[in-house]
Computed example of a mutant assay.
Amino acid sequence: MAEFTPGTDDAESDELFEHYSFTAGAGQVPLRVDKFLMNLIRNATRNKIQQAAKAGNIRANDVKVKQNYKVKPGDRIRVLFEYPPFEDLLTPEDIPLDIIYEDDSLLVVNKAAGMVVHPGHGNYSGTLVNALAHHLGEMPLNSSNRPGLVHRIDKDTSGLLVIAKTDQAMAHLAQQFFDKTTRREYLALVWGNVADDAGRVEGHIGRNPKNRLQMQVFPEGDQGKEAVTHYKVVERLGYVTLISCRLETGRTHQIRVHMKYLGHTLFNDARYGGDRILKGTTFTKYKQFVENAFSLLPRQALHARTLGFEHPVSGKAMDFEAPLPEDMSACIAKWRGYARHLSDE
């Protein structure tokens, strides 16, 4: 029996590979590694495994091995499969889109929580790009060969995205994001009573070396990429705080990581531990209250509320706002009621 450690299945990841890791059990009989992997990985063909071996992407105990390596008890087997070409994943799908604005150059959509932005491992369909391919047909490619995309937000984050419809719009909008001239504000519900009414978080963000599904702050700037977030308290709600965040940079999981670094993990952010009761009392009624709040908002409490940029053709300032989705509004209302109860005590 092999113990399985999954690799990244986050379609918002910058990774170019599917990653799998297995530890062969004590009763493992000697078996070629290609057959070993075919038995354990769904849809892993012999050719796919052979290509991985040829590229040096199969390792036994951190040593590169060929496809005929015999797996022994206790061996730790890791394999990286390259993603298929993006165009192979791009199937137009008739998925409803909440389009806030559209003209000949671009469109702005209000993405629902739960929708992945672009296809990738584990999410080959049902993504925003699949929906856009149906709505628009041809789209310009960005530097990562992803149609129309100028920026992105996490699967379980709701809110605004701008999509380029022409090469000119793609280049112009991409330059604005690079130059940090776009205007982006997020609303987040975080654990704890944030001490300062406003503040600035500056800390390089990079992949967590111990958990590749997470990002982390490297405060000395020795690793990762520069990341700056400005936050402001909107409402104090007892054991949680509603804040707004303005981004200077756009790193993967930036707000989620920066707020955790400050000790204020996003409410119900399972990847970073926010799905546990991090603040409050030990009373059973309080625990039940928080569980009910988790049920109302079964994702991290993060919404991309505003987006502003210069129109790539007219040069006009464009600013958009998306109201809080129902799940986040309901959760905040519940905490608002609890905060009133605390103040009455």
Rank of each mutant, 00 (worst) to 15 (best):
A133P: 00
K180P: 08
A322G: 02
R46G: 06
V63E: 13
R236S: 07
N142F: 15
V117R: 00
L31C: 03
A113V: 00
K111E: 01
R32C: 04
T5V: 14
E310G: 08
G224A: 03
K165M: 15
A195L: 11
R256P: 01
N57E: 15
P30Q: 13
D104A: 05
N142A: 15
V194W: 01
H311P: 13
D94Q: 14
Y286L: 08
R183N: 13
E202H: 11
Q50K: 13
V63H: 13
A227R: 06
K279P: 00
L213N: 14
I95T: 08
T182S: 09
E138D: 12
G56E: 08
L16G: 12
G203W: 06
V29T: 10
L80A: 05
G159F: 08
N292P: 14
G280W: 06
K48R: 13
L173G: 06
A333P: 02
G114H: 02
H121G: 07
E310H: 12
F22Q: 10
K260F: 01
H264P: 12
K64A: 13
L173Y: 03
P30A: 12
H151P: 04
R299M: 04
L136A: 13
A198M: 13
K48H: 09
Y261R: 11
F17S: 10
D88N: 09
K210E: 09
P73H: 10
R146W: 09
K316R: 11
L37K: 09
D88H: 10
Y286W: 09
G337R: 11
K54Q: 05
A133Q: 05
Q28M: 06
D62N: 11
F86M: 12
L141C: 10
D319M: 11
P6E: 12
A317M: 13
F81E: 03
E82Q: 12
Q67H: 07
V201A: 02
S158Y: 04
D103T: 15
D156V: 01
E138K: 15
D94R: 14
G263D: 03
A174Y: 10
K54H: 07
S13F: 04
L132R: 04
G274S: 06
Q175R: 10
G315R: 14
N142C: 15
Q28H: 12
Q67E: 10
T91P: 02
G159A: 14
L262C: 03
T282C: 08
N211E: 06
G224Q: 04
S295G: 13
R152C: 01
I243V: 09
E235I: 05
K225W: 07
Y186F: 05
A169H: 15
L89E: 09
T127W: 03
P84G: 09
A53R: 02
L262K: 09
R236V: 05
P92C: 07
N130F: 09
V190N: 00
C245M: 02
F320R: 11
G203P: 13
K165P: 11
R299P: 09
H172T: 15
P30V: 01
E226R: 15
L149S: 05
S329A: 04
K334D: 08
A174E: 14
T45M: 01
R251G: 15
P209C: 01
Q214F: 01
A53K: 04
M259Y: 04
D103K: 06
Q67Y: 07
K279F: 09
D10Y: 03
V162A: 02
D156I: 00
W335H: 03
A53Q: 05
G148K: 07
V194Y: 01
